[in-house]
């Protein structure tokens, strides 16, 4: 098995120091690692498992069960478009097609150059002002196709 990079190992160690003694704190630990690195390195599984007295399979099971956790590096920019009912009623289906065309990748995928990933999200709690989305961690509501395009262009230039 490959070993973690120094940066990865440090992130895991820091998170373990914070959470290893807290009851049931596997999720906060995984969040802390992912918040630092953007993903949870596969190679961290054995370290986390032994610190929490769990089997590797248990830790792997938890990481893969939750939609939020990921084991691969994220693309440079992440666009999450709400696909849930209230946004459907406000036009998220056609907005999604527009985003797919602009970025050149399908919902749930990333672009070949890994500059962009386009993810579905099921409700951001902005249901009165949809379509709603999250772009690189910032929330946006009442998104028109024009607004979407200009926000993407702005990121492209940055």
């Amino acid at each position: 098995m490959n070993s973690m990079t120094t940066r990865e190992a440090q992130a895991v160690e820091d998170a373990l120091t914070r959470f290893r003694d807290e009851q049931g704190a596997l999720l906060p630990l995984l969040h802390a690692v992912q918040d630092t690195l953007g993903y949870i390195p596969k190679e961290a599984t054995p370290t986390i498992a032994s610190a929490f007295n769990l089997s590797r399979a248990e830790v792997h099971g938890v990481i893969t069960y939750y939609h939020h956790f990921r084991q691969t590096e994220p693309a440079q920019h992440k666009l999450a478009l709400c696909q849930a009912e209230a946004c459907q009623a406000r036009g998220c289906r056609s907005l999604t097609e527009k985003a797919e065309a602009l970025l050149g990748c399908n919902l749930g995928e990333h672009t070949a150059d890994n500059r962009w990933e386009l993810e579905p999200v099921y409700c951001l709690g902005l249901c009165a002002s949809g379509p709603a989305m999250e772009l690189d961690g910032k929330l946006y509501a009442r998104i028109t196709p024009e607004r979407l395009e200009s926000l993407i262009r702005k990121k492209e230039l940055s």
């Binding site: 209230a86 946004c87 099921y122 409700c123 709690g125 902005l126 249901c127």
Partner: peptide, 10 residues
């Protein structure tokens, strides 16, 4: 609060 169309908890 996972239900689409709800945001009162938030």
């Amino acid at each position: 609060e996972g239900d689409s169309g709800t945001f009162a908890d938030r």
